[in-house]
Design a protein around this nucleic acid. Structure first.
Lengths: 116, 116
DNA sequence: CGGTATCCGAAGCGATACTG
DNA sequence: CAGTATCGCTTCGGATACCG
C-alpha cells in the first residue's frame, strides 16, 4: 500500500496513475515538459478540451504539487503562466515514455493506427 | 490527431492513456510484465479490485490487443491464463517507468508519501 | 475456477453562458 | 485573459448474488 498526500494506492503504478491519470493530465504535462505556457496557449494546443475541464485538471495538478501557477497581473486582462515544479520535472521521463509509445505504435501499426 | 482501432485521440500521449488509463489497467500490466498469470493469481495480487472490474479491465485490454487470454480447460474448474501480446510487450518500458516513478516518489518525499 | 447479472453511486467530462 | 456557474450525460468502478 502506498500513500501520497493522504490518498492510498494499492500499487506503485496506481500511485503514479492517480496523479497523471485521466483524459487530459498527461497531455498538459506533455506540452509543459520543456516550456512555460499561458492558459490560452495551452488551450490552443488542446483545441478539443473544454475550458472547464482544462481549468479543473490544471487545478488538480497544482494541488498535487506537479505544476506551478504564477499570476503576473492583478487586473484584467490577466496573465497566468503554468510550469512544472521540481516534482513535476521528475515526471518528464514518464510522460515522454507515454508519448513516445503513442508515436511508435502509430508508426509500427499503420493498419490499425494512423496519424490524421 | 491520432487514430487507434477506430478511436480518435488529440495527442500521442492521450492515445497511450486511452489504452492503459483508468484505475487498474497499469496495475494489471505491471503484474503481467514479466510473467503469465491466472485469473485468481491476479486477484490475489490485487486484493482491492472487485471480480467484475478485474474482468472488465482484462476484457478491454484483450480487445485492444495488449493481452492474450488462453483457456486450457473446457469444463469447470476452468484454467485461464493471461499474458502480454507482442504489442503489450512494447508497453513494458512505459509501465515500468510509471511504476518506478511511484517507488521513487515515495522514497524521495517521505513527508508526503509513504509505503505502508 | 473464472467468470456474469444486476443494480447503483460517484466521478469524469462536455456544452453553454457568464464574470472580474 | 483566465477563468466560474450551472446543468446534465456518460463512464467508471463497487457490492452482491449467481452460474457453467
Amino acid at each position: 500500500m502506498y500513500k501520497f498526500k493522504g490518498k492510498e494506492y494499492p500499487c506503485c503504478a496506481s500511485l503514479t496513475m492517480g496523479l497523471i491519470g485521466g483524459k487530459w493530465k498527461t497531455v498538459i504535462l506533455f506540452y509543459l515538459r520543456n516550456t512555460t505556457l499561458r492558459y490560452n496557449e495551452l488551450r490552443k494546443k488542446m483545441p478539443t478540451v473544454t475550458e472547464r475541464t482544462l481549468s479543473l485538471q490544471l487545478k488538480a495538478l497544482e494541488e498535487d504539487g506537479i505544476i506551478n501557477r504564477k499570476v503576473y497581473t492583478s487586473k484584467p486582462p490577466l496573465k497566468v503562466e503554468y510550469s512544472l515544479t521540481a516534482l513535476g520535472k521528475t515526471l518528464i521521463p514518464v510522460v515522454q515514455s507515454i508519448a513516445d509509445w503513442g508515436v511508435y505504435t502509430v508508426k509500427e501499426n499503420e493498419a490499425i493506427a494512423t496519424k490524421v
